[in-house]
Amino acid sequence: MPFEPIVINSRSMSYISLDKFGRLRINKLAMKALKLEPHQYIVASVDVDLKRIGIAKQELSRVPNASIAKLDRRGQVSGIGKRIAEKLSLNLSQAPFFFVDIGWVDDAGVRWRAFELMEANDVL
């Protein structure tokens, strides 16, 4: 029987998380990929079919009918996570949920940084 390699995912990857209080947190590597600083404004979107969240800087994208949200100094955004959980049918009592960075996606003239929901058995 051949050896099977063991993959150890480290916390040195770009991701966002959603906690039980409905706060969306963007980790340092994701903030670096998005070129975000604390206290900047973002716009978020959801792809329900693929269980993805898209994040874009508000200055770079003028998304019609979108609400802007402000990052705090820790990379957290309050209020938006509950709406994301509702759209993706996630039960916040089972949080935290992690969304791994899959890169840039262009959609309707807006360049989003896409993050895909990790399965429960996947570990960061």
Rank of each mutant, 00 (worst) to 15 (best):
M1V: 13
P2W: 13
F3T: 02
E4S: 09
E4R: 06
P5A: 05
P5Q: 04
I6E: 07
V7Y: 11
I8P: 06
I8S: 08
S10P: 06
R11W: 14
R11D: 14
R11C: 07
S12A: 05
S12K: 07
S12T: 03
S14F: 11
S14V: 06
S17R: 11
S17H: 10
S17F: 09
L18A: 04
K20I: 01
K20T: 05
F21D: 02
F21I: 00
G22V: 00
G22M: 00
G22T: 00
G22H: 04
R25A: 10
R25Q: 11
I26Q: 10
K28S: 07
M31Q: 12
K32W: 09
K32S: 07
K32V: 03
A33M: 02
L34R: 10
L34N: 08
K35M: 12
E37L: 15
P38F: 15
P38I: 10
Q40R: 14
Y41Q: 08
Y41N: 08
Y41P: 03
I42N: 04
I42Y: 12
I42L: 04
S45W: 01
D47T: 03
V48M: 02
V48F: 05
D49I: 02
K51Q: 05
I55K: 06
I55Q: 03
A56P: 05
Q58R: 14
L60R: 15
S61Q: 10
S61H: 12
R62P: 00
R62W: 08
P64I: 02
A66K: 09
S67M: 04
S67N: 05
K70D: 01
R74K: 07
R74Y: 13
G75V: 14
I80Y: 09
I80R: 02
I80P: 01
G81S: 06
K82L: 01
R83A: 00
E86R: 09
K87F: 05
L88E: 06
L88P: 05
S89A: 12
L90A: 06
N91V: 04
N91K: 13
L92T: 09
S93N: 13
S93A: 14
P96R: 09
F99K: 06
V100F: 15
D101A: 09
I102V: 13
I102H: 15
I102P: 14
I102T: 14
G103A: 05
W104I: 00
W104Q: 01
V105W: 08
D106S: 15
D106H: 15
D107W: 05
A108P: 04
G109N: 01
R111A: 10
R113D: 04
A114Y: 15
A114C: 07
A114E: 13
M118P: 09
M118F: 13
E119C: 05
A120G: 06
N121L: 00
D122M: 04
D122V: 05
L124P: 12
